[in-house]
Design a binder for these strands. Structure first.
Lengths: 244, 244
DNA sequence: CGCTAAATTGACCCGTGTCAACTGGCGTGG
DNA sequence: CCACGCCAGTTGACACGGGTCAATTTAGCG
């Protein structure tokens, strides 16, 4: 097994299409220019006009939008294998910001490199667009959560979604996973106050469903949590390769 | 001016890139297979595995997700020139449904046609991906609205966003526009109850900001509404052609 | 060992949901 | 041509989920 085959992105795309050596090589070209970033300094900030995106290789990132009143809405978290800023690549200005959570590593991609890659292999294009579509489906699901689900369901749903995403790139499973997020992160992502997140985490813990403490999410009763969470993973489209 | 040049989609894409005759011809090929649909019967329903998307030529559509408890969340409305189901094209199953509002006309596109078109012209690929990115940016903005904005700001923002989108394809302007939506549509889109939508519409009307009645949105004081709405249209990226 | 950020807890308040009732317009069938 | 029904819209009374403020504890770390 080569280093490329174990890259989280390749691993993720394999859930959609089995890639040929030529296609993996094309993907590998996108992994040049790997850089390190640390928390506190955004990779891209809202309003910036830049034509670069990133592939996250290691660590977690959050993408967020700042409001005029100073509050922020976290749109999604990115984990290894995820694209950062793929969407803004086509827009004149980035409509949101990216902040590393801890220290991370990511490879820069320019707009023309991406368009070039899409043109060279329809299968690879399909795989990359699949990943982008899945990301959008997650944003839609977050919209549903924030608009229609109570805080406890919302939080449970969120923890399960992360679990499924992490499992796809080989991190964590049904027991739980390491999670570097603070309760403030959860609050900003779920449209709640940090105080309420705390209350709800306590309730879920007391109900013996999940325990999130000290950077570890531990599932106390996965099946009952699934029920509580109104979690149907269909939107994540983790069905195994469609394109052979 | 040919019929193709006046198609809403071409008109919209022109806000991003000036298209050559060859490129307009490629776009035109996507407009074959025009069909008519009527309200009450979904174009695509959640869970359906199908590999078709549509370009909306006439009328309005809403895309929504149904919950287990029967409530629905409207993710966005589509107006002439918009794609329907571009995202689900790459996923195994559609993660949401499309319902015509009144009678509409739309052209069907298959997955391979789209990938083929993307491969033939990088500029056209860029333009189509731009449109898809803008759609996603709108979903993100809806997320922000639902999570962080009070009902009145949210509603005002929504009406202004629609106004900007309609103006781009030549429908309506700063005075107002024809809008076929019911208060139930607004409620399902904004994460509010229909009753509260009614209350807020009244307030906005009494404050002489907007009047929405009898299928007409009329801006009573556009500038003051902008202020109230926390509306920064940057995310819509309507800046005029980038690619000359 | 103090310093600081994160986590916790309690008291109170407000925006929005829910329930219930009423109005008005419009199409259909007797 | 009127009566009926239906659906969108409208309004008021009341309940409750979650926000806010304030205070305290815990945990990491130089």
């Amino acid at each position: 097994m080569t280093a490329v085959e174990t890259s989280p992105l390749i691993r993720k795309l394999s859930a959609f299409a089995t890639l040929s050596t030529g296609e993996t090589a094309l993907m590998q070209r996108l992994h040049r220019r790997r850089k390190t970033f640390v928390s506190g300094r955004d990779l891209v900030h809202q309003g910036q006009s830049e034509q670069a995106a990133y592939i996250l290789a290691e660590g977690w990132v959050c993408s967020y939008k700042l409001q005029a009143d100073g509050s922020r809405q976290i749109v999604d978290f990115q984990i290894p294998g995820d694209f950062l800023g793929l969407r803004s690549l086509m827009l004149r200005v980035s409509d949101h910001s990216f902040e590393p959570i801890g220290s991370i590593q990511a490879s820069e991609i320019m707009r023309d490199e991406l368009l070039d890659t899409l043109g060279r292999s329809p299968r690879l294009a399909a795989a990359i667009l699949w990943a982008a579509s899945r990301d959008e489906a997650m944003v839609v699901e977050h919209l549903v959560s924030v608009a229609r689900r109570d805080a406890d369901v919302r939080l449970a749903h969120f923890l399960l979604e992360l679990s499924a995403r992490l499992a796809l790139v080989g991190i964590g499973g049904r027991e739980g996973y390491a999670c570097p997020l603070t309760q403030y992160h959860l609050a900003d992502a779920l449209g709640l106050s940090a105080i309420h997140v705390n209350r709800i985490l306590r309730r879920l813990r007391e109900d013996r469903l999940v325990t999130f403490r000290g950077g570890i999410v531990r599932f106390d009763d996965y099946d009952r949590l699934l029920e509580r969470a109104d979690f149907d993973p269909a939107y994540l489209d983790h069905g195994g390769p469609v394109l052979g």
